[in-house]
Design a protein around this nucleic acid. Structure first.
Lengths: 309, 309
DNA sequence: CCATCCCATAAGTATGACTTGGCGGTCAGC
DNA sequence: GCTGACCGCCAAGTCATACTTATGGGATGG
């Protein structure tokens, strides 16, 4: 059964005449007449009686009209629902972010997004980059915020789009009482901490630390390993270690007992947004990507503005 | 929104791939691909993500699928309902019949029809031919069983089809004790009852009676007028009048106190089925017409068989 | 690394959808 | 009783569009 014709039939029933329906539809009378004929042939029974002043529905026509009305209502509902999704008056976007971003950039972006589109349902899931990638591949999230240390080949299949949105410099974190704790603005070479005990971060961060130290000519004595940046700072504050932490982790939570200095010669890690190649055409995803890049750009400007200020 | 494409999209969702949907539909892959493209363009958002192993529905796609499922269900229901109407497993047919037929031919036809199509809803409304015509014109009944006396121009607009289905001879009805009551099989001339008091039937029947008597050379003394053939016979049985009644009225109810003789020179009235020109294409109507003509034919055969028997 | 399985694109064809033009029938009003 | 208005059907022509064929690119898996 041709559903399009059903809606034409509905117009015939409304106008109570074939010519009237044609006028409503902006067609000529024979066009509508032919549609009706096809419909009746398929139905196997007349749907209307042709009478001098127009048409009158038969029992079958009345039955069909009820269904046509229901179908038209559904089509209308579908149109409205899609419209809402396109205009971001509805919809969901699911984000995955690594912990330190989840505590800083992402909430800011979500807040911005909520202001722009109050009815958008934004959901955050914390995940380290490898797991975030899995979530993305499985379709469990729409956008993943990940990072890659300098020198690492950024993960992600060819299926995905990788959008760099900013850099996150790494800082050397020491106990306040440490001889190298000052001056805070002057970069410190890793090598000066060659004899210290170290605290590493997540697996990839620890690997990166090892690699950076190697480049500086020593093998670090890594005693602790945790991706909890609060715990890491607590260890450092008590003089149990030193560490190399990303600025974002320090922004998220700063232990008053630690001192921070730029790490000379250590290139910042790069933040990436990952999504399916076509996903940025989805309104909700596009909105989320926009908010995230806006927040990242804002942070970037602040960073650039900071040194002069 | 093109509804047909919605059902194609439904197939894509079911197959979880465009090519798979194409195979299900017996088409080539680009055909389905193009439909999806059009649908997405109209929707203003991607409905699926193209992934290496097939496609994955976006939020908008999932929403649309729900509506598409509902629409498909409605289409299915409509198809089934029409099918039932065509096969006479459902449906209604509304009849109008004049009283004496309503008590004889029509019940027989309805019984026959009920045997053939037990689920058909047949409704009878009693109406004299003029009113039956109005009902038919107003669309309140589908078939009208009417009659025309010989010489009358059968009523009905050009819009209608008139199907003669049989004749109903008129009989002279007398009190049993009347000198002319015998012999029952021999036709009696109206003129022999010129001096009697008469009982007329309905308006048109009374007019016909007057006309028939005029043709026989006298003006009848019509004392009573009722379309109730039971009442008329009661009057006659008590010797209060004589009458000219159609055979059908006598078949419907025969007062034991009356005698009946063929009326010489009075041509029978003709029974007609009336319906809209296209109405006989409607299965329920076609069924009813069939049953009515079958019964009429059967009655006709019985009549022809009677004289020899 | 090649074979396979997805899908997209481009161009060609053919079905069928809508228009034009013409006709018959019914009804209302002069 | 005839004429004009309305409503519908039919036939033929044109054009849109819905498919096909052919081709190519990206991802996956032996």
């Amino acid at each position: 059964m041709d559903v399009q014709r059903l809606l034409i039939f509905r117009e015939i029933a409304r106008a109570r005449s074939i010519g009237g329906a044609a006028r409503s539809l902006g067609w000529t009378q024979p066009a509508v007449s032919q549609h009706l004929r096809h419909l009746e042939r398929q139905a196997g029974t007349p749907l209307v009686l042709r009478r001098p002043r127009g048409v009158q529905l038969t029992e079958a026509g009345q039955a069909l009209l009820r269904h046509a009305d229901a179908i038209a209502a559904r089509v209308q509902a579908a149109t409205e629902e899609l419209e809402a999704l396109v205009q971001l008056r509805a919809g969901t976007v699911r984000l995955a972010a690594f912990p330190s971003a989840g505590a800083t950039v992402v909430p800011a972006a979500m807040s911005l997004l909520a202001g722009r589109h109050p009815h958008l349902d934004v959901r955050l899931r914390e995940a380290e980059p490898p797991q975030a990638l899995d979530l993305l591949a499985a379709g469990d999230v729409d956008v993943a915020l990940t990072f890659a240390h300098a020198g690492e080949t950024p993960a992600g299949t060819e299926e995905m789009v990788r959008v760099p949105i900013g850099q996150d410099p790494l800082r050397l974190v020491l106990p306040r009482s440490h001889p190298c704790a000052e001056p805070a603005d002057v970069p410190l070479h890793l090598g000066e901490l060659a004899q210290e005990k170290w605290a590493g971060g997540c697996e990839r961060c620890t690997a990166h630390l090892r690699q950076a130290c190697e480049a500086a000519g020593f093998a670090p004595d890594i005693r602790h390993g945790t991706d909890d940046y609060v715990l890491t700072q607590a260890l450092i504050a008590r003089g149990l270690a030193v560490g190399l932490l990303p600025q974002l982790a320090l922004d998220a939570a700063r232990d008053p007992g630690v001192a921070v200095r730029p790490a000379a010669g250590v290139r910042p890690r790069v933040l990436y947004l990952l999504h399916h190649r076509e996903a940025d055409q989805i309104p909700a995803v596009r909105g989320a990507l926009g908010a995230l890049t806006d927040i990242a750009a804002r942070a970037c400007r602040a960073e650039h503005a900071a040194p002069p200020g």
